[in-house]
Structures are given as structure tokens and as C-alpha cells.
Nucleic acid binder design. Structure first.
Lengths: 146, 146
DNA sequence: TTCAAAAAAGACATTAATGTCTTTTTTAGT
DNA sequence: ACTAAAAAAGACATTAATGTCTTTTTTGAA
């Protein structure tokens, strides 16, 4: 209901790279998919989208793989939501009424406005770097143990 | 993202009946579907579920249709969500991690907990009757104008 | 320059949500 | 009893999200 599986895969994928990449090597999609127990080719498509948005960097060929971009850690979660789920949900009426707005509200308009704005605020202010806790030795478990 | 179309159809359907039924007659599914511009047979399945949960009453045959039950107006929105979307979304980790909980949280655990609890609180306290504003001459428009 | 490794791209499969159409059951009035 | 009207039920279709498999492109190193 709240967010798609794709969003979860995107976030876990980028966090995995951010956690391991500083060791120097590029991270291969095969390793990410294995360790996170996520469908490999499905994840690959999502990683590719993040590369297109410059949220990650990738290099093809031997010794290639995924690595951080200059903006990875500053990227807001909302950017990931845009890529994986789109922003429509934040702007469309919960009852699917196109004419619904604050001048002409549906019976749930203001309740949903509050809930969505809360989520929007949270995801607008939180960055990938904010979620990354390299000091926590169990961090990798917190994104990989299913 | 937040709620399914089915939920929206359910709420609009029951509000429509609640608004018009006091005039005495049962409301036919055909009328509801027409006036709300909703797929008739799809709506019928959702209305049937509400009848099974006693959120509405229905009678077959000539002069039949849908009418209010004793509990219609006291029914919480969360009950509609249960019927149409289920409650899993409120109890499962946004990253699909089965082991995620407050002792062992994923990186988004507490943020999502807050957002979901906000929605849960709102939908637990708001009833169908709370949304029904019979004094408002435009109320019917607010659930039917798409 | 060739080879192998890696991401990228694309074709196809599966599943869940949504939507349509037909048949069955129930019931009020004649 | 019969008929017609209505919900209920069930079969099937469409669409979007998710998942799998294969082919293409790129590139580092021998």
C-alpha cells in the first residue's frame, strides 16, 4: 500500500553499495542480488534507472560494477520514490476524483492531505546518507536479513 | 500507493446509499454505479463484501437494493480498508524484511512506523457517519464528480 | 586484437488488481 | 405458479507490477 517493492529494492541496493564500495572495489549486480535475496534482473533494471538519474555510477566490462556517484549520499528518498513509484499518488485524490481539491474537497481530502504531507516531509528531508550507519556492525543485516 | 481503487469505490458506494436511503427506497446497484461513474459489476462485488460484513444490508428481487444496516454509520474507515486492502500493509516492513521490528529495525522502520500509525489512528477514529454531511447540499457532488 | 566479464537492453512469463459479461438465486407482485 | 427485477455468483479479459531468461554492448587485460 505505502510503497512498491521496487522502492524497497532500490533503497536496499543503493545502501548495500554505499556500505561496501569504500573498500575500493566496484560491486557486481550478482553479489547485490545474492546478498539481498532479490531477483537479479529485476534489481538490475532498478539499478539502471538509478544510474540514469546519477544516483549511482556503473561501469561495464571486467572489474566493472556499481559504485557511488558524487550525489549518492545527498539523494533524498523522495527521489527514489519518484523513480520507482512516481509522484502521482501524492497529487491524486484517494477517491480518484479529478475535481477534488481544497476548495472542492472529497470527504477524505484533508485527512489524506495530512497523511501524505507527513510522508512527503519525511521523505523530502531524509537522504540516503542519513540512513547509512557505517558504525553499526549490524547495519548490513538490517537491509539483508529477510 | 496509499489505498486501492476498491477502497475508494467502497467508501463512495456506502456514502451514496447513506445519503439517499433515508428517502425510503432501496438503492439499486445500477443507480450507484451510474451516478458514481464506477464499473458496475466490480462495484457489486465490493458492495457484496460490505453486506457480508453487515456494513450494509441488501435485498434481492423487485423493489430490492441496498440500504443501511444498524452499524453502517458507526463503521470505522479501517473496517473498509480491511475488506478492500487487508491489514498486512500496516504490519509488514516497507523493505519486505520479515525480521524487521523495533528491536531489530530496518533503516526506515521508525519513520514508516510513525507514518503508518498516523494513518491507522485517523482511520480507526473516523467513521462513515463522521464523513457524511447531509447538511451540505454539495455533498453528493463531492463523492460523484470525477 | 581477441577474450571474457560486466552492465544494458529486450523479450517473455507470472501474479495481483481491476474490469466485463453471463448465469444463478431470490423475491415481490400478479 | 409465473414473471420480472434485483443481488449474488462465477467465468473470463485487461492491465500493471513483478519476475525470468536471453542477447547485445561495453571494456579491461592478456
Amino acid at each position: 500500500m505505502f510503497l512498491s517493492k521496487s522502492f524497497g529494492y532500490a533503497l536496499r541496493g543503493v545502501l548495500y553499495v554505499a556500505l561496501l564500495e569504500p573498500k575500493g572495489k566496484k560491486i557486481k549486480i550478482e553479489q547485490i542480488a545474492d546478498k539481498l535475496a532479490v531477483p537479479r534482473h529485476f534489481l538490475a533494471k532498478i539499478m539502471k534507472k538509478m544510474v540514469q538519474e546519477n544516483i549511482l555510477t556503473s561501469t561495464k566490462g571486467p572489474y566493472g560494477g556499481f559504485s557511488l556517484s558524487p550525489i549518492t549520499l545527498q539523494t533524498k528518498l523522495l527521489h527514489l520514490v519518484k523513480i520507482t513509484d512516481g509522484m502521482e499518488q501524492f497529487n491524486t485524490c484517494v477517491l480518484s476524483l479529478r475535481k477534488c481539491n481544497s476548495k472542492n474537497p472529497c470527504p477524505l481530502h484533508f485527512q489524506m492531505l495530512q497523511i501524505r504531507d507527513g510522508m512527503l516531509a519525511e521523505f523530502s528531508k531524509t537522504s540516503i546518507g542519513d540512513l547509512l550507519d557505517k558504525k553499526n556492525p549490524d547495519f548490513i543485516k538490517s537491509i539483508s536479513v529477510i
